[in-house]
């Protein structure tokens, strides 16, 4: 049984269709990145999955429960983090966490050792008596994330969890989510419009654009969507570099060429046999190697390609 099972989901607001025939599954132990540009329908999907709004057509099942009729059976099994953290601003951090723990955590045996470790990682002793409204945005998000993880859910839904968060905090949050996943193996779905947020955690990607599902694949499969390869060539001197750059410009298959000192970075279309072309040029170079394609670039290419279509 999949942790999340979405079948032919549709959502219409009057004449506007926000989601069209979305179907995908999230298995237990999977971390799925739900990716798409702003306005693509991510939040609508999350709102339907979390039972906050009803779909116009299709069905959503979470841990075997239908979201429209059996949602209350999920009490204590599901944890959600929305962009506003869901914390009570006038209550202290301790009161907020205790409240959620009593409300959603007391019907099952929670791993107290894990909670203690989690609290240590957020410096609980320092902030426990602070009212939530006094905390920085990053700290609020940390408390929100700890609240979600503390309940040790079988299903974790994170809606834009790193939005507006600086890099240092982002890596701390990613670490917390990764540790929880390693220990408890829940199903996790996290949304973002930025590939960088997703790639460090997700094992699978579901990409949505204008309400259409445009990709559902593993991270490694996603690399095959690349429409170009990146190469880097190092030269011994400036004149060789310049000469190569001049010969490259306008050459068929070269998408982009950037010179930086005695190095050139090139983006080459997939069908071009670039290495053979360089050999044919009979130019002297120190090194030539293929760079890993940036997943963010692949994602952007994919989104733009679909936009053009």
């Amino acid at each position: 049984m999949a942790a999340i099972e979405i079948k032919n989901l549709e959502k219409r607001y009057g004449k506007k269709t926000a989601l069209r025939q979305i179907s995908f599954e999230v298995e237990k132990g999977d971390i799925v990145g739900y990716l798409g540009p702003n306005g693509s329908g991510k939040t609508t999907t999350i709102n339907i999955i979390t039972g906050l709004i009803r779909a116009s057509a299709g069905s959503v099942t979470l841990l075997g429960c239908d979201v429209n009729t059996e949602y209350q059976k999920l009490l204590g099994k599901i944890s959600v983090l929305f962009d506003d953290n869901g914390l009570y601003e006038r209550m202290t951090v301790r009161q907020n966490l205790n409240y959620y723990k009593e409300l959603f955590g007391s019907q099952k045996a929670l791993d107290e050792e894990y909670i203690k470790k989690l609290f240590d990682q957020m410096n609980y002793q320092e902030v426990k008596n602070h009212e939530v409204r006094q905390l920085s945005k990053g700290m609020k998000r940390m408390v929100g994330l700890v609240r979600a993880l503390m309940l040790q859910p079988e299903l974790l839904i994170l809606d834009e969890p790193f939005d507006g968060i600086d890099l240092e905090n982002r890596s701390r949050y990613i670490q917390l989510i990764r540790e929880y996943h390693e220990q408890k193996q829940p199903a996790i779905i996290l949304t973002s419009h930025v590939m960088d947020d997703i790639r460090q955690l997700a094992s699978r990607l579901v990409i949505i654009k204008n309400g259409h599902l445009i990709a559902d694949c593993s991270m490694s499969e996603f690399r095959n969507f690349a429409q170009k390869r990146s190469y880097r060539i190092l030269f011994d001197n400036d004149s060789d570099t310049k000469q190569f750059a001049e010969r490259c410009s306008g050459m068929e298959g070269i998408v982009n060429c950037t010179v930086s000192g005695c190095a050139i970075s090139l983006a080459v279309s997939l069908d071009a046999d670039f290495k053979q072309t360089v050999e044919n040029m009979k130019l002297r170079y120190k090194d030539l190697y293929q760079e890993h394609e940036d997943l963010g670039d692949i994602y952007l290419d994919m989104i733009q390609e679909r936009r053009a279509q």
């Binding site: 979390t50 999920l74 944890s79 959600v80 929305f82 506003d84 869901g86």
Partner: peptide, 14 residues
């Protein structure tokens, strides 16, 4: 207004 109701309902509270 503070959207805490989103959290409560989405976590299984009727």
């Amino acid at each position: 207004k503070n959207k805490t109701i989103h959290m409560m309902l989405s976590m299984g509270l009727p």
